[in-house]
Design a protein around this nucleic acid. Structure first.
Length: 292
DNA sequence: TGATATGTTATCTT
DNA sequence: CAAGATAACATATC
C-alpha cells in the first residue's frame, strides 16, 4: 500500500514535524522491526526527512540516517507532546465514525506498535501489523543499495522518455510487472500501476516491448500524473489498507480510483465492466473495453 | 475454510 | 545464465 504518494506524504509531514528535534530515546517492542544500534542515534538532532523509492529517510546530525520501510502494513504516527489530547481526539473520532479495525490508530501505543522513537518534543510510533516493515540505522545511504532503484517515477527530469523507451524495449514481461519493478522505476506499486495503465488505455498484460512510441509516451505521462494527483490527495487508504498520515488520518485518493479494487463495477469511461485477473501474484484491474 | 491483502526478495522452474 | 514465475515473510478479514 504505501507506494510513492503515501511515502512522500509521510516524508513531507515528518520533515515539518521532526526538523530540529532531538532523539531522546528509542523503545524497540519488536526486535525484527529495528536493525542497528540505538546508541548511534540517541541525542542526535533531525536535519531533515527525505525519500528514496518507498523508503523514508530521517537524516540525523553526524552523518547518521534512519531508513524506514513500511512494506504492507506499516504506519508512522507522530504525537506532538503538547498536542497529545487534540490528536487523540481526532483518532477517537475516526474510530467512532468508521468501522473499527486493526489499522485505526486509536490510543498509542497500540497492539501493533513495534518501535517508539521519543523526541524532546513528541513521540513517533512505528506500527506494523504484519511485521514486514523495518527501521534501519545507516551510516552510509549507499547501504540501501542505490543500484536497487531506478529513477523516481514522479520526477520527469530523471524519468525521461528515452530512458523509459529503452527499458521497455528490453523485455517481454507484462508492462504492469515492468513499471512495478523498483530497479527500473522507483515508487510505483500495485494500485498506481493499475490506475496509470487505465489512464493510458493500455492492457496490463501487454508485453513491454510491444508498446508503440505513442503508448510509451502516454504511459509515462499517466504514471507521472497519477502519482502527482495522489500526492495532492495525501495518498490512498482504501478499505483494508493500513496507510495513514502522521496524524492518523486517512488519505483520500481512494475516492478517485478508476479501476483498483473495482472488479464487477462499471468502467467510469465506457459501459464496460472492470475485470480482475492475477498478474505476478497481484490483483490486477482493468477495463477490457477501454484498454488495448 | 479458502481466498485475498498494498512490498520485497529468496528460491524455484523454464 | 537469464528471465519469468512463485513462495515466503505474519496476520487479519471476508
Amino acid at each position: 500500500m504505501p507506494e510513492l504518494p503515501e511515502v512522500e506524504t509521510i516524508r513531507l509531514q515528518l520533515d515539518q514535524a521532526l526538523k530540529g528535534l532531538r532523539i531522546t530515546g528509542v523503545e524497540v517492542l519488536n526486535k525484527k522491526s529495528f536493525v542497528g544500534e540505538i546508541g548511534d542515534i540517541k541525542e542526535k538532532r533531525v536535519i531533515g526527512v527525505t525519500r528514496r523509492a518507498k523508503i523514508t529517510i530521517i537524516e540525523l546530525e553526524g552523518g547518521v540516517y534512519l531508513a524506514i520501510h513500511l512494506k504492507l502494513t506499516g504506519q508512522l504516527i507522530f504525537l506532538e507532546e503538547n498536542q497529545k489530547s487534540k490528536i487523540s481526539k481526532a483518532c477517537f473520532f475516526e474510530i467512532k465514525d468508521q468501522k473499527e479495525g486493526p489499522f485505526e490508530v486509536g490510543e498509542l501505543p497500540n497492539k501493533y506498535t513495534r518501535v517508539i522513537i521519543s523526541f524532546d518534543k513528541g513521540k513517533l510510533f512505528f506500527n506494523d501489523l504484519r511485521i514486514f516493515g523495518w527501521i534501519r540505522v545507516l551510516r552510509d545511504l549507499g547501504d540501501l543499495g542505490e543500484d536497487k532503484f531506478g529513477p523516481e517515477a514522479n520526477d520527469e527530469k530523471t524519468f525521461t522518455l528515452d530512458y523509459f523507451k529503452n527499458i521497455l524495449a528490453k523485455t517481454k514481461k507484462p508492462i504492469k510487472i515492468v513499471i512495478m519493478d523498483q530497479k527500473k522505476l522507483a515508487g510505483v506499486g500495485n494500485i498506481y500501476a493499475n490506475e496509470a495503465l487505465f489512464q493510458a488505455k493500455i492492457l496490463p498484460t501487454r508485453k513491454a516491448d510491444s508498446l508503440t512510441e505513442e503508448e510509451v509516451k502516454k504511459l509515462r505521462n499517466s504514471i507521472i500524473n497519477v502519482l502527482k494527483e495522489a500526492i495532492f490527495h495525501k495518498g490512498s487508504s482504501d478499505r483494508d489498507e493500513a496507510y495513514r498520515q502522521i496524524t492518523g488520518e486517512k488519505g483520500t485518493y481512494q475516492n478517485y480510483f478508476s479501476v483498483y479494487g473495482k472488479a464487477g463495477q462499471k468502467c467510469p469511461k465506457c459501459q464496460g465492466t472492470i475485470k480482475r485477473i492475477v498478474l505476478g501474484g497481484r490483483g490486477t484491474f482493468f477495463c477490457p473495453n477501454c484498454q488495448k
